[in-house]
Nucleic acid binder design. Structure first.
Lengths: 236, 236
DNA sequence: GCCGAACCGTAACGTACGGTACGGCAAGCC
DNA sequence: GGCTTGCCGTACCGTACGTTACGGTTCGGC
């Protein structure tokens, strides 16, 4: 590229073609993104291109060639992490109250573990920092959308079939799956995420998470469990 | 936990004595902080000292003299806003189910209005951005603590007496006021705050807020309303 | 061996911004 | 008047960091 603004359009190959997140990456690129991710967790949003290059043992020129600019690197990093978190959907076949309860507790427990993890906190922090008002001309505030899409909305997408299977089998009673999901979400997460994001110490032990998951599940069943079956509250 | 605003003497160095109520501020200083607040809402965290000075029609030198440094200005701004938000506590006397329900709905509605306001979102964004890992040598992460103290914890402090009055009068049944509060918090806020912080459009109309407040209140009463009227067998 | 592509390491550039210094001006006080 | 105080406006400095440029090295293909 001696002289001419040959590829000034700075987003040809960097963009990471929307769907196959993580698919079109070479091993080396994944390693670089892992380094960036680690740095993001350690240093927060003020990680520098130089630091990423040094940590990943690659040159800044390579970073810019692969990811376009700092935002591109950040976006790719967030998407890369998101692509690693994909969880297997739960099959809602032959559902009885016990297995439904177990599924809900599992979802609650997994979700609490996710939102209290260092990685999630760091990612949410950077995404929130980038979601300022009218930032950039057009799209580019992808970070918040990506995090949301792979966090809260992915959870809803996986949980709703379970809820609807429960309704189908007469175990649950609700009018709108979306509303029911949000109730469950609120009962599980409560104030945990905002407190952690704001820097509140709040160590969630394995035991505490298990207890909270059971409590949230029982509360949800108390609200939306079908009245026809047994639903005794149990110690939690 | 988090008893009072744990001030490091770092920020006391420069003006802003540890009155977090914004009492010791001159009118001019309040005007400057209002300008900073407006700018914070408009521009997010990347507001500059120069921009604040220009907006407030004051010199940068004055900003530094009054607030020490950028963080001091940010902290003072957050505290200034917090001091304006103080809400009158609800008196929980002669409580019957109707007035309890009304109180809870009021709390829920107020809280939803707060967390969906531009100001709250901007403040939480900047506080979260400042709550990174091991930022600075000492204290300095005050922002998150301040926001938490004047948001979620202030809400708890005002709501708990109402809950306990409800229990006293046999209207509510719960073991731990803190846990009960967190349940109510979760039922009210659900995913609203995190979605807004991450940039999700999510217009909350007055009507929607009212509906959500009523729903959350009914759900809370379903979970913690006394089943047998004002003569429950439980003694503590 | 030669060539080109990809990449590393690092120096260099440009700029934005936090922080400081200085001149000017108005008000109060002697 | 002259001195002091407090503030505005602005020029200035230092640095951090995003971004670019360039020389050097490795590696695959012929």
């Amino acid at each position: 590229m001696t002289g001419g603004p040959a590829f000034r359009e700075k987003s040809v190959l960097h963009i990471v073609p929307d769907i196959d997140t993580g698919e079109a990456l070479t091993e080396r690129q994944k390693a670089v993104l892992d380094a960036a991710l680690r740095l993001l967790v350690e240093e927060g949003d003020q990680l520098t291109m130089t630091a990423v290059a040094r940590r990943a043992s690659c040159s800044k020129e390579t970073l810019y060639k692969w990811f376009g600019d700092r935002d591109g690197l950040l976006t790719a990093t967030v998407q890369w992490q998101a692509s690693k978190v994909r969880v297997a959907p739960v099959d809602g076949k032959g559902l009885d109250l016990a297995s439904l309860t177990a599924s809900l507790e599992r979802f609650a427990s997994d979700w609490l573990k996710v939102i209290s993890s260092d990685t999630s906190i760091a990612l949410n922090r950077v995404a929130i920092g980038h979601a300022g008002p009218i930032r950039r001309k057009e799209g580019k505030d992808n970070l918040g959308a990506v995090v949301l899409e792979n966090g809260r909305f992915a959870l809803a997408k996986r949980l709703k079939p379970v809820l609807e299977a429960g309704r189908q089998n007469g175990l649950l009673d609700f009018a709108d799956a979306e509303t029911a999901f949000r109730t469950f979400f609120g009962l599980v997460a409560r104030d945990v995420q905002i407190r952690l994001l704001l820097g509140d110490r709040l160590e969630l032990t394995e035991a505490a998470i298990g207890g909270d998951a059971a409590r949230a599940t029982q509360q949800f069943l108390a609200l939306h469990g079908a009245k026809t079956g047994p639903q005794g509250p149990r110690a939690g």
